[in-house]
Every structure is written in C-alpha cells, then in structure tokens.
Amino acid sequence: MKKHLLLTGIATILLCSCNSKPKTELTVSGLNPKDFQTEVNNAQTNLYTLKNKAGMEVCITNFGGRIVSVMVPDKNGEMQDVVLGFDSIADYIHIPSDFGASIGRYANRIAQGRIVLDGDTIQLPQNNFGHCLHGGPQGWQYKVYEANPIDDTTLELTLHSPDGDENFPGNVTATVTYKLTDDNAIDIKYSATTDKKTVINMTNHSYFNLSGNPAHAATDHLLYINADSYTPVDSTFMTTGEIVTVKETPMDFTTPKTIGQDIANYDFLQLKNGNGYDHNWVLNTAGDITQVAARLSSPESGIVLEMFTNEPGVQLYTGNFLDGTVAGKKGIVYNQRASVCLETQHYPDSPNKANWPSVVLEPGQTYHSECIYKFSVEK
C-alpha cells in the first residue's frame, strides 16, 4: 500500500512538473514565441500576438517595436504573411535592418547630421552618406520598448530615451500603440513628450509584399499615391529643398500603375539618384486621416493595402538595397525589390528646411502621429 501511494505521489509530482512548464504554441504565421525571448541591455524581449474577430493576426516584438508578421486572407481565403522579417530575435539583433520597426527619434535623413536649436548647432551621428538616418546607428529600432498588452487587439509600447541619446537633446518618453481593428486595419498611434526642445519624427518601417511570397519581386504591385508633388533628392539621397510636380514624370502615381513600370528608367535623374524609388511624396490629404493617402495591391493574391495618415508626407521605398545576402522568415532570401515600404512622416531634413512643416517638440507639448494600414481583398 505504501509503495502504491509512493508511486502515485511520484506520478503526481511528475505530472504537475510537466504541466508547469510554459506551453509553446506557434503563431498562425508559424513563429515560435520562445525564439523571441532574450535580454538586450538587461531588458526582456518577447513576441506579442494581436488577433481580431475576423481571424487576422499581427505579431510584434518589443525589440525596436517591430511588426514581425501580418497574416491576412487572400482572394482565395488563404492566410498570407505580407511583411518581411525574421524568425527569431537573434537575427533582428545581429543582422542590421529596419524590418517592421518603430523608427525614432527622427525617421529618414538629416543633412550632415546637423540641427540647430535656439542658435546651438548639434552634431548627430552620420551613418548614411554623411547624413543621420533613422535616428543614427543606435536608433530606436535597436532599443527595447516596455510592453503593455492592453487586450487581445491592442499593444502599448513605451520607450524612455535619455537626454543625449544619439546626441539628440531632451529626455523623451515615446509611446507606440498598435490596435488591430475588426475591419482588418492596423491603427498605429505615436506620442512623445520631452523636457528640452528637440526634434521628433516617428514612423513604421514595414516592408510589404502583398503576394505573401517575398521570393517574388513586388514590382508587379499596383500603387496609387494621393500626391501631386514630391521632394527631389541629390545623389546622397538628401532632399534638395525643392517641392516639384509629379506630372509627366515617373514619380506620378495619381493614376495607379505597377511599381515596375518606370522604376528602371535611370534616364530620369531622380530614379538614378534614389536607386529606384526612395523619395518623399507631399500628400494632398492635408492631415485628414479619413482620406486614402496611398493604395497598394497585389494582382497575384488580390490583397489590398490602403494607407491613411495625419502626416504631411510618405516615403516610398522599394527595397532597393536588398541584395540577396539576407534570408528572412522560412529561409526565404530577400532580393532587390522584394518589398514596398510606405513610411508616413514629416519630410526628410525638415529641421534644416525652415519653410517645411516643423518637427520641433517643446517641453509641455505632446507629439502626435497616426498611421493606419487597412487590408482587404480586391473585389
């Protein structure tokens, strides 16, 4: 009897021991949350999953506030992952990229990494053709945000950026809130406060391939941009300060056309300077977030992405610097033109262009920005 009780007790302990181990459930996109758990600078990283009633799934890591996967139905009702990224936190840490990131303090480029505030010249890192790109080499895409899951559809991420972070002034507290709505939209809201005058320009840097197969170039995607003008760049990708019409140029997306229709027309200097499309469009929407700012669709999958924003501009980037040296999720190699980025923003180098919308944030003010990526299927 005692032996029987002893064996029963051991079995119970073993059973309890097994049940107490954390369960590992793959996401719909095939990600293993355990592969995103580590520590970076004494801060814990994880993978967070948002789901809505329609069955859409968005996976986000608090390392860089990055969207890792977006699962939406195609024209056949099959779920497709429509963003580029990696299968594990190790790749995000060790392979430099902006895949899916919440970019800050300043998205895009600042000329020669210099800004002037109240007569003081501040030198920022120069990490891209002599300019400061995406907040410098240790911008917010490489920081760990504090994660606060609100509910099944909402994740709040907070970052405390100290005074002097990449030499930007001011102690800044920034928040990125991801909300997955029941009509298959990712509503991204940004806010920030500072204790010293500074500059802020945040964005999301998701690389979209709406076919669901990034082994295929995204040059067949149809694109519409609600913009009659854009800001040209020089050979170092820096805005010249001009705002010019898109009319009768390859920059005209006011009538939808494929990304690939004009992208190789390097006789047009701007496409040569940008190595393809890597430019800011001046939106006609005037901050009205109810108006479609851009529309992207894949003829292969039938998936449509509509973008809305209160920002004055959007950067179209067509994966020009992807070169086949990086393998992403499921081992797929990312070649040139494998994706399309639609980065909502104030214009590049706004701190040095006095006649452009200001990016200065003062103590007592709150920075607000919003971007909505809404998915549907072509009817």
Rank of each mutant, 00 (worst) to 15 (best):
Pro357Gln: 10
Val359Tyr: 09
Tyr334Thr: 06
Thr344Glu: 09
Gly313Val: 09
Ala354Leu: 06
Ser350Cys: 15
Phe321Thr: 14
Thr318Phe: 02
Phe321Glu: 14
Gly319Val: 02
Phe321Val: 14
Leu342His: 05
Trp356Pro: 01
Thr325Asp: 02
Gly328Trp: 02
Thr344Cys: 14
Glu311Met: 14
Val333Pro: 02
Lys330Ala: 13
Gly324Ser: 04
Thr318Ile: 00
Asn310Pro: 05
Gln315Lys: 09
Leu342Gln: 04
Met307Val: 15
Asn320Glu: 11
Gly313Asp: 13
Lys353Pro: 01
Gly313Asn: 10
Asp323Trp: 00
Asn352Gly: 11
Thr318Pro: 00
Tyr347Ser: 07
Leu316Met: 12
Phe321Lys: 15
Asn335Val: 01
Ser339Glu: 11
Arg337His: 15
Asn355Gln: 12
Leu316Glu: 02
Phe321Cys: 12
Gln336Met: 04
Phe308Ile: 03
Gln336Asp: 02
Asn335Ala: 09
Asp349Leu: 04
Tyr347Ile: 14
Glu311Trp: 08
Glu343Trp: 10
Tyr334Phe: 05
Phe308Met: 04
Asp323Ala: 02
Glu311Asn: 12
Thr318Gln: 01
Leu316Pro: 01
Gln345Asp: 12
Gly328Asn: 02
Ala354Ile: 06
Asn335Arg: 10
Asn335His: 13
Pro312Val: 06
Asn355Ile: 04
Ala354Ser: 13
Asp323Ile: 03
Ala354Cys: 00
Trp356Gln: 08
Tyr317Lys: 11
Pro357His: 05
Glu343Lys: 10
Val314Asp: 06
Thr318Tyr: 01
Thr325His: 06
Thr344Met: 10
Asp349Arg: 10
Ala354Phe: 05
Ala338Phe: 04
Pro357Tyr: 05
Ile332Arg: 12
Phe321Pro: 01
Pro351Ile: 13
Phe321Leu: 14
Val314Pro: 00
Ser339Pro: 00
Thr325Val: 01
Tyr347Glu: 08
Lys329Cys: 04
Tyr334Leu: 05
Gly331Glu: 04
Asp349His: 10
Gln315Cys: 13
Ile332Cys: 03
Arg337Phe: 11
Lys353Tyr: 11
Asn352Leu: 09
Asn320Ala: 11
Lys353Thr: 15
Asn320Arg: 10
Pro357Met: 07
Val326Arg: 13
Lys330Gly: 02
Cys341Met: 06
Thr344His: 05
Thr344Trp: 02
Phe308Gly: 03
Ala327Gln: 11
Gln336Glu: 13
Thr309Leu: 06
Ser358Lys: 11
Pro312Ser: 08
Ala338Gln: 09
Gly313Glu: 08
His346Asp: 08
Thr325Gly: 00
Met307Pro: 01
Tyr334Met: 06
Val326Met: 10
Asn320Val: 11
Gln336Lys: 15
Tyr334Val: 07
Gly328Cys: 00
Glu311Gln: 15
Val359Glu: 10
Lys330Gln: 13
Tyr334His: 12
Lys353Leu: 14
Gln345Leu: 13
Val333Ile: 15
Ser339Gly: 11
Phe308Trp: 05
Glu311Cys: 07
Thr309Ala: 13
Ala327Gly: 01
Lys330Glu: 14
Leu316Phe: 03
Thr325Glu: 05
Val314His: 05
Asn352Ser: 09
Thr309Glu: 09
Tyr317Leu: 08
Gly328Glu: 01
Met307Lys: 08
Arg337Asn: 13
Thr309Asn: 12
Lys353Gln: 15
Ser350Asn: 15
Val326Gln: 13
Gln336Tyr: 02
Trp356Val: 02
Val359Pro: 04
Pro357Val: 09
Gly328Thr: 03
Val326Ser: 07
Met307Ala: 14
